[in-house]
Design a protein around this nucleic acid. Structure first.
Length: 863
RNA sequence: GGGCGAGUGGUGGAGUUGGUAUACACAAGGCACUUAAAAUGCCUCGGCGCAAGCCAUGCCGGUUCGAAUCCGGCCUCGCCCACCA
């Protein structure tokens, strides 16, 4: 054994051993309990960042722990390899996205290997490989057959210079992020997946996910957005025809307070009214051009214009004017609302602005409203000034009004979801081709299964002006599968969220060229533990839950929910430093280049090392390129090694909380592992390798205390492990080492206690610091491979003491402690406690009102 | 505007069911070893007080023998959603 801990040597040897022995190869073994542990696969952006390291370390801890618990574990890894950054890099470097992506994958794979993760690399997948995305296309065709995929014209952000669609986040202050051109709204045909058909099931299914964080479930439920209400129509006549202006409301009880109706600019009625009304037409155009971003909509001023059309109130027969309102969304409900200014704040603002009447028809049960209203009264109450509905509460009023509307044929109760169908068309090159051929004679023709996959050419270089596929004849020129005539292939590709919606299934059978899934899926799926960032709480996880149900309905899967347990790990944060120059431009400096010192009165001063001049502290924030506060994990690994990096990640914060980077924290981790090594070295030097740890042997009190400490800490650590609080498991490792180091030197049984303690400690740490644990396990000759060693359990007999210490409280305040025999009953304890000087002093002859005993912990004397 | 979290030392954070608040670290200070530095080891470390003791888990109140933990009302911060009818 080397005297000094050399992480490089230890880690290289351990990794070589694991690789040569195929230690992480997962093999199906029916009858054996399985544990499928999955971390969200990375986008191959170039190199790992700290967030990856944290994510995969947490996953690896769970994987290795469950293996030692006797589970047949699977931890796969792959690449979310399609996407926009590859196209941007391609433009910048004139290299095809494919080459850039594959190079990045090769480098990042090496980085992952150097961290010692227990990954089964034989199952590696990359979503940009035809053998993977073929099944995207295949499933899309199945969905098309069932009407679950369909084509529709939708509104998108369009960059007129680049001739391309922009994602919402690529629109900055109304302009394209690359070109600076004013973004237009355009209606173009896109393919949609009918996720709304599963809205109810996606909502109800959340109830069956006790292993998911509450907040993720809440976010999903809000996103699906279920509302109970009434859908009904206001009748009107146009060009001699009787029509209905349909609206949806969750407040049918306020229907007698309607003083106007408002429709979205895109609504058919608005278009109709705009004909022959240039001012209205101009207003409608203005509204249509507005941002697609909903967050922006919330802040803009309410604007509207009358259409000149009037509808009839379905219950009162009153004439109601119809307006176009910029606050009405075409995409939700009917694109039209009933205006109740008395009881809806938006309607109130609109009515106030345009002088429309405001009517109060709801009042609190036992109070009167302050009239005139200064704002809409939103609370539920009872109906007033509502004719036959007067005095009814919310539920009764809605029931009665819905019944009347239904009787008259105007509408009825309805459930509405906020969720919209998933548009998957992207006018981008680096993605999965949509398997459709456009034929002049036959229309849109699906590519037959036998012609799958539609292969994406890998040698194109985008230039920023539109989709290169649309300019590559060898791709788009094809024969119609139906009639054989010349046709044009669809050049849109799929949203990359499609790729990530089912990759976890494919890990079970990545090599199957004949089918999307096979028998092995039944063994491994669903995923037992999924780990990833909270930023995927809505979209990725919702799409995956949807896709799973689609596959289930096709008979490909037999379960509803893909991820049984979900752990959302926190962000990795670091300090931010910057300077502002005369022009107001902010330059960020990496904390590694900044010398920070704590000055007088705790004031923090920071200077840039390069020039010794001060920089301003900008607080703490997520590691990011824009704030230039990232720490390159590779430097950490090169300098300290994988185990120290992993230990720091686990020890510093609980997995779900954010983790603050700290150089001295890393030093602390390094210090601990050196001490661990030294402890093992001493034990090896004492020649005590073969001394067996006998639990039953009578130990002198000091050693019994050490052993008791070790087992007590282990007991707590096992509880912490089970609830995924890994930071305190790492603490437990430190506590055990502290206890072992305190063991008295001259006792003959010392080495036996130390050996037992080390065998526990190494196993406890091995999920966190697998390399050094592996190495010391061999050096101390505990037998076998620690990878598959049994997880340690505390020895109950080690925890028993003949005398226990009880804390003594008087009136709930700690006043001392007493030692009592382990089996003392309440009377005996009371006798001892009342006789103790600490209690005597406070009781001072006063009568004892109550004597509370918490067994094994404390007593409380109430006087 | 709505929803969900979270507020504990100088810092990161412990504290299952209410039961010794501040575990384990980091930083800081002191000492030892050393020619010196690094490394290592030992000690101190919530506040006030000479002490007995008192006060401290965002603030105010309540329940309880006993509250960081439970209940009610505020304040602050973070995240998510957001003119959703």
């Amino acid at each position: 054994m080397q005297q000094k801990y050399n992480s490089r040597v230890v880690e290289r040897e351990a990794q070589k051993h694991w690789e040569e022995s195929g230690a992480f190869r997962a093999v199906e073994s029916p009858g054996e309990p399985k544990y499928y542990c999955l971390s969200m696969f990375p986008y191959p952006s170039g190199k790992l960042h700290m967030g990856h390291v944290r994510n995969y370390t947490i996953g690896d801890v769970l994987t290795r722990y469950h293996r030692m618990r006797g589970y047949n574990v699977l931890q796969p890894m792959g690449w979310d390899a399609f996407g926009l950054p590859a196209e941007n890099a391609a433009m910048a470097n004139a290299v095809p996205p494919a080459k850039w992506t594959y190079d990045n994958i090769a480098y990042m794979k090496k980085q992952l290997a150097s961290l010692g993760f227990a990954i089964d690399w034989s199952r590696e997948i990359a979503t940009c490989r035809p053998e993977y995305y073929k099944w995207n296309q295949w499933l899309f065709l199945r969905m098309l057959e069932r009407g679950l995929a369909y084509k529709k014209t939708g509104v998108v952000n369009w960059d007129p210079v680049d001739q391309t669609v922009l994602a919402n986040e690529q629109v900055i202050e109304g302009r394209g992020w690359r070109t600076g051109a004013v973004v237009e709204k355009r209606e173009i045909p896109m393919y949609y997946l009918a996720i709304t058909r599963h809205a109810e099931e996606l909502l109800a299914g959340l109830e069956e996910l006790p292993g998911w964080p509450e907040r993720v479930k809440t976010m999903q439920a809000n996103w699906v957005g279920k509302s109970f209400g009434v859908r009904f129509g206001f009748p009107y006549e146009l060009d001699g025809k009787r029509e209905l202006l349909n609206v949806f409301t969750t407040r049918a009880d306020t229907i007698m307070g309607v003083t106007f109706c408002a429709v979205a600019a895109e609504h058919a009625l608005a278009g109709r009214a705009a004909r022959g009304n240039p001012r209205l037409a101009a207003f409608v155009e203005e509204c249509k051009r507005g941002s697609v971003m909903e967050a922006d909509l919330a802040t803009i001023e309410k604007k509207g214009m009358p259409t000149g059309i009037a509808v009839t109130h379905p219950l009162t027969g009153e004439k109601i004017p119809v307006w176009v309102g910029n606050y009405v969304l075409m995409g939700y409900g009917e694109g039209a609302v009933m205006g109740v200014p008395g009881h809806d704040q938006r309607d109130f603002e609109f009515a106030t602005q345009y002088g429309l009447p405001i009517r109060d028809v709801i009042k609190p049960e036992d109070a009167e409203l302050d009239l005139p209203l200064k704002a809409a009264h939103l609370d539920y109450g009872v109906c007033v000034r509502s004719g036959k509905y007067d005095g009814l509460d919310y539920a009764k009023a809605v029931d009665a009004i819905a019944a009347d509307l239904e009787a008259k044929g105007f509408g009825r109760k309805q459930v509405l979801y906020r969720l919209r169908d998933w548009g998957i068309s992207r006018q981008r090159y680096w993605g999965c081709p949509i398997p459709i051929v456009h034929c002049g004679a036959c229309g849109d023709v699906p590519v037959p299964d036998k012609d799958l996959p539609v292969v994406l050419p890998e040698d194109l270089v985008p230039d920023g002006t539109g989709n290169p596929l649309a300019k590559t004849a060898s791709f788009y020129e094809c024969a119609c599968p139906k009639c054989g005539k010349a046709a044009r292939r669809e050049t849109d590709t799929m949203d990359t969220f499609v790729d990530s919606s089912w990759y976890y299934v494919r890990y079970a059978c990545p090599d199957n060229r004949q089918a999307m899934v096979d028998e092995r899926v039944k063994y491994w799926l669903p995923v037992d533990q999924y780990i990833g960032g909270i930023e995927h709480a809505i979209l990725h996880l919702l799409y995956s839950r949807f896709w799973t149900r689609v596959m289930r309905d096709l008979g490909l899967l037999t379960f509803d929910e893909p991820f049984v347990n979900l752990l959302t790990q926190g962000m990795v944060l670091n300090e931010i430093f910057f300077r502002t120059n005369e022009g107001g431009r902010i330059t960020y400096y990496n904390p590694a280049d900044v010398e920070a010192s704590v000055g007088e009165a705790g004031a923090r001063a920071a200077v840039l090392r390069a020039d010794g001049k001060p920089v301003e502290p900008g607080g703490i924030g997520t590691m990011s390129k824009s704030k230039n506060n990232g720490v390159d994990p590779q430097e950490l690994i090169d300098h300290y090694g994988a185990d120290i990096a992993r230990f720091f990640m686990i020890f510093t914060s609980p997995p779900e909380q954010s983790l603050e980077w700290s150089d001295s924290g890393v030093e602390g981790a390094a210090r601990f592992l050196r001490r661990l090594w030294n402890c093992a070295w001493d034990l090896v030097q004492s020649g005590a390798r073969s001394t067996s740890a006998q639990s039953g042997a009578a130990l002198p009190p000091e050693l019994a205390a050490v052993r008791r400490e070790v087992h007590a800490v282990l007991k707590q650590a096992n509880y912490d492990m089970s609830r995924h609080q890994f930071n305190t498991v790492a603490s437990a490792g430190m506590k055990i080492l502290n206890a072992l180091e305190r063991a008295p030197r001259d006792e003959p049984m010392r080495d036996a206690v130390l050996r037992e303690g080390m065998s526990i400690l190494l196993r406890l740490l091995s999920p966190i610091t697998p390399h050094v644990s592996h190495h010391l396990w061999l050096e101390l000759e505990f037998g076998g491979d620690i990878l598959s060693a049994r997880w340690p359990e505390p020895d109950a007999s080690a925890l028993i003491e003949d005398e226990i210490e009880l804390v003594v409280q008087v009136n709930g305040r700690k006043r001392g402690d007493v030692r009592v025999p382990r089996d003392a009953d309440k009377e005996a304890i009371e006798r001892i406690v009342l006789a103790s000087p600490a209690v005597q002093k406070f009781v001072d002859g006063k009568p004892v009102k109550k004597f509370v005993v918490v067994p094994g912990r404390l007593v409380n004397v109430v006087i």
